[in-house]
C-alpha cells in the first residue's frame, strides 16, 4: 500500500474510533510514526483527508445503492444486501457520528450528504417494490413510500443509536441487530403470513448472537 493510502486508512480508523472532531493531522502522523512534514507532503492537513475519504465513501455507497435501482435483486440476496449496506455505513461511521457539526465545518459536503440520503430512499423504495412485485410482501403505495423513508432513516442514524445505546457491543453484533431491526419491519406485510417469518428471523438472530457472545466470552 502506498503512503497516501496508508494515511487514508489510518485516518479512517482513527476517525471511526475516536470521532473526527478532535483528531488533528499531527495525531494521524503520530499514529503512522511519520513526521507531520511527510504527511503534509501527501495531504495539506486534515481537510483534504476528510474530503478524499468522503469521495471514497460516496463512490462506494452510491455503487451499492444503485444496484437495486438498476435491476431487482434476487429474492434471497436482499437480505445479504442489507448487511452490505450496514457495513458500508459502519466502515465510514465517523461521517454519521457528528454529522451536524461535520456539515457545518465542511459546507460543501451538505448537499452531497443530502443527495446520498435521497439515493438511499430510492434504493429502499426499489427493494420494497421488488419484494412487492415478487409477491413476497403485499404493501400499498403510501405504506411502501413510508417504509422506504424509514429504512433510509434507520440506515443513516443507526451508528449514533448504536453508539449511545449499546456502546460496548461489538460492531458485527451491532450490524446483526441493525439488519434484524430492518427486516423485521417487513413482517406485517409478508403475503404468506408473518408468523413463520417472524419466528425464523428471530430464531436466526438469537442463534447468531449467542454464537457471537459465546465466542466473545472465551
Amino acid at each position: 500500500m502506498n503512503t497516501k493510502n496508508k494515511i487514508l486508512q489510518a485516518s479512517l480508523e482513527l476517525f471511526n474510533e475516536e470521532g473526527e472532531q478532535d483528531i488533528t493531522a499531527v495525531d494521524i502522523a503520530n499514529v503512522l510514526e511519520m513526521s507531520p512534514g511527510n504527511l503534509y507532503y501527501h495531504f495539506k492537513g486534515k481537510d483534504p483527508i476528510i474530503h478524499k475519504l468522503f469521495i471514497d465513501f460516496e463512490k462506494d455507497f452510491k455503487s451499492v445503492l444503485q444496484a437495486p435501482i438498476e435491476a431487482p435483486l434476487e429474492l434471497a440476496d436482499n437480505w445479504v444486501y442489507f448487511y452490505i449496506l450496514f457495513e458500508a455505513v459502519a466502515n465510514f461511521r465517523f461521517f454519521y457520528r457528528n454529522q451536524q457539526s461535520l456539515i457545518e465545518r465542511y459546507v460543501d459536503l451538505e448537499p452531497r450528504f443530502r443527495s446520498l440520503i435521497q439515493i438511499k430512499i430510492n434504493a429502499m423504495a426499489s427493494i420494497i417494490d421488488g419484494l412487492n412485485q415478487q409477491n413476497f410482501i403485499a404493501i400499498s403505495e403510501p405504506e411502501a413510500e413510508q417504509m422506504a423513508q424509514r429504512f433510509a432513516q434507520q440506515l443513516t442514524y443507526w451508528p449514533i443509536f448504536h453508539r449511545v445505546m449499546t456502546p460496548t457491543t461489538s460492531l458485527p453484533i451491532a450490524i446483526h441487530h441493525g439488519v434484524y431491526n430492518m427486516i423485521i419491519q417487513l413482517a406485517p406485510h409478508v403475503s404468506a403470513g408473518s408468523n413463520e417469518f417472524l419466528q425464523l428471523i428471530t430464531e436466526f438472530r438469537d442463534k447468531m448472537l449467542s454464537t457471537f457472545q459465546h465466542k466473545n466470552n472465551q
Binding site: 493510502n5 486508512q9 479512517l12 462506494d60 444503485q66 445479504v80 457495513e87 465510514f92
Partner: peptide, 26 residues
C-alpha cells in the same frame, strides 16, 4: 475483522475494482 478488511479496500486504489460490482460484494 470484516470492517478492517473492507476499510482498506474502500479507502484505497482497490475502490476502482469493487465499484459497480454488486454480485462480487454479495
Amino acid at each position: 475483522s470484516a470492517a478492517k478488511q473492507y476499510a482498506p479496500m474502500m479507502s484505497g486504489e482497490a475502490v476502482k475494482s469493487t465499484v459497480g460490482n454488486i454480485s462480487d460484494r454479495l
